[in-house]
């Protein structure tokens, strides 16, 4: 019996058996682990795919009339291929799109979709071509250099949006909207994508850190009241001049009349 054991252990088949058992064990374990990983990737892939599918469905129902099937554009609206998810997110989540009527400019309106729907539309538009993606939360924190942001704002933005971000008029019925109460995400996306008649400020022109500085500046002027007193909506010299002409001179005229009038 002992001899038999010894013999079989020494048999050349034994070595093969041991190696095969080892391979099966380790390989099997690895296969189980890998399939688990594969399952999760497959799930996200399916959900991203579903999100784009959902986005496409929403796009066909709400946007394709003007922007064309597959976003190729029509006479009524430009192509959205390559505008990026950031552009779609800005337009839809600020309520500018879907547009209500054609005109010089699409005004912001109450938002018409839920956040999931907006994300789906953005994902679909983003999938149509290479374009800027939605900025992440850390790019939007107002922790940059506000004084540098102020200088960049005055050079690049203030001519249209007013030095205090109050907005202003453009040509032929268009206007630059106020930046008060606009979310940092929308400010960032607008710089990145150049919605409607606003020019594009890509990352080579205003780097992500420049954009962060500008967002910090806007947050600063919104949080801090004007040191010079009541700012009359920040509309600038015309509003201030009109106020002085009417109320300042009005007061002076009233006082002069009182001085010259006889007592009762």
């Amino acid at each position: 019996m002992r001899k038999t054991l010894k013999n079989s252990r020494r048999s050349p088949l034994a070595a093969i058996f041991v190696i095969a058992a080892g391979l099966i064990l380790s390989g099997g374990g690895y296969a189980v682990a890998t399939s688990a990983v594969e399952n999760t990737t497959a799930n996200t892939a399916i959900s991203a795919q579903e999100q784009i599918k959902e986005g496409e469905r929403l796009f066909l129902a709400n946007c394709a009339t003007c922007h064309g099937v597959n976003g190729v554009g029509t006479a009524a609206g430009p192509t959205v291929i390559g505008v990026g998810a950031a552009s779609a997110d800005f337009q839809v989540s600020s309520g500018r799109m879907p547009g209500q009527a054609s005109g010089p400019q699409m005004p912001p309106k109450p938002v018409q979709f839920t956040e999931e729907q907006i994300a789906a539309i953005a994902a679909y538009v983003g999938s149509l071509g290479v374009g800027p993606s939605i900025p992440t939360a850390d790019m939007l924190e107002a922790n940059g250099d506000s004084s540098r942001g102020g200088e960049l704002f005055r050079i690049n933005c203030a001519m249209c949006h007013n030095a205090a971000g109050a907005g202003g008029a453009l040509t032929e019925g268009k206007w630059a909207p106020t930046l008060k109460g606009v979310s940092a995400k929308h400010v960032y996306e607008a710089m990145l994508t150049g919605p409607q008649n606003m020019p594009v400020f890509n990352d080579a022109n205003l780097t992500p850190s420049d954009k962060k500085d500008i967002i910090t500046y806007l947050a600063y002027i919104e949080a801090n009241p004007s040191a010079g007193g009541y700012e009359l909506a920040g509309l600038g010299p015309v509003a201030e001049g009109l106020f002085l002409w009417i109320f300042g001179f009005g007061l002076i005229i009233l006082i002069t009349m009182w001085l010259g009038a006889k007592s009762n």
Binding site: L152, I155, P199, N202, N205
Partner: peptide, 21 residues
């Protein structure tokens, strides 16, 4: 160059619809 820091501008930086000061 870009206002205010004076970084030179490459032609490839100027994408369609961009404005540089």
């Amino acid at each position: 160059a870009k206002d205010p820091d004076g970084t030179p501008i490459k032609a490839s930086d100027v994408t369609l619809g961009s404005i540089f000061h």
